[in-house]
Design a protein around this nucleic acid. Structure first.
Length: 280
DNA sequence: GTAGGGTTACTC
DNA sequence: GAGTAACCCTAC
């Protein structure tokens, strides 16, 4: 890029947050033209606002700060009934932290360290094994089905795929990606003795010649293991989704309680101050 | 005008 | 090398 990067100042970020509070996210042009914020945001376009807000939103999910690189893969410690102050803040990097860590709440499926993204991608390409390559959506879907990824992953995937392609670890075909031929030899097209088992596993072990009963038995066992694993993944995903929805319901109830309380105070003529929590 | 994917520069 | 922030491009 020609122009040097113009880092956002804290004043600009504050103005953006205030603008979103005032006009709502998505009204970037309105915010940018608002006389209250335009002095601060004069050097930013509406697109800049949108991009920055996107980054802030991602930051809220736990990966925003470059100083905190530790993925948020541990379980949440936040209470289901967060404070009113935090709840009433629309700025993304505060709201999510305090109230809706639905994404951050996701844990590794077995409590172990999840595989690196590069490994996930290689696994996805290996399993998808499409001759013309798999597009980003397919890769993303596959990985999300099998692994817990950060909300940033979608954007990060682009860079990661390109880097893998640059280093010839994968091959880019138009807008799709596939494993290089050296990997593809895993899935030759030899005539299989038993075509009635079109499983993914039978593909991945296709380099072996299923010529012995022992190998055939091993293949059959591997197929069953793979199927069981797939079902376990599905069950886990369903459970995670159910937990997420339950958490959302609890958070919504907390919000409602707070709203009712504020409403009651207003009815009684009390002045209610909403304090923004500034830490982290 | 906005959303979202893609690219590049930067930090660690 | 991995990951993120800022910027660019394009479709709607």
């Amino acid at each position: 890029m020609g122009a040097p990067k113009q880092k956002w100042t804290s004043e600009e970020e504050d103005a953006l947050r205030a603008g979103v509070r005032k006009h709502g996210a998505g009204k970037w042009r309105t915010i940018q033209k608002d006389p209250e914020f335009s002095p601060v945001l004069s050097s930013r376009s509406n697109i800049d606002l949108k991009d920055k807000w996107r980054n802030l939103s991602f930051s809220a999910s736990g990966l925003g700060s470059s100083k905190v690189r530790v993925p948020r893969i541990t379980g949440p410690t936040s209470s289901p009934s967060p404070s009113a102050q935090a709840l009433l803040l629309p700025a993304p990097n505060k709201v999510t932290e305090a109230t809706l860590p639905a994404d951050a709440e996701k844990k590794p499926q077995d409590g172990k360290t999840p595989p690196k993204y590069g490994v996930m991608i290689m696994e996805a390409l290996s399993e998808l094994n499409e001759p013309n390559g798999s597009d980003m959506a397919a890769i993303l879907r596959f990985i999300e089905e099998r692994h817990v990824v950060q909300p940033t992953f979608r954007r990060f995937l682009t860079s990661k795929l390109r880097r893998l392609a640059d280093s010839n670890k994968i091959v880019k075909i138009d807008k799709s990606y596939r494993l290089p031929d050296s990997f593809a030899t895993r899935t030759p097209a030899p005539k299989q003795k038993d075509p009635s088992k079109p499983s993914k596993v039978s593909k991945t072990i296709g380099l072996f010649t299923a010529s012995s009963p022992a190998l055939e038995a091993a293949m059959a066992a591997a197929v069953k293991v793979a199927d069981a694993e797939a079902k376990a993944h599905d069950a886990h995903d369903q459970m995670m989704e159910a937990e997420r929805i339950l958490k959302m319901a609890e958070d919504t109830e907390s919000l409602l309680t707070i709203a009712v309380e504020i409403y009651d105070r207003c009815l009684r003529g009390e002045i209610t101050t909403i304090v923004a929590q500034r830490d982290v």
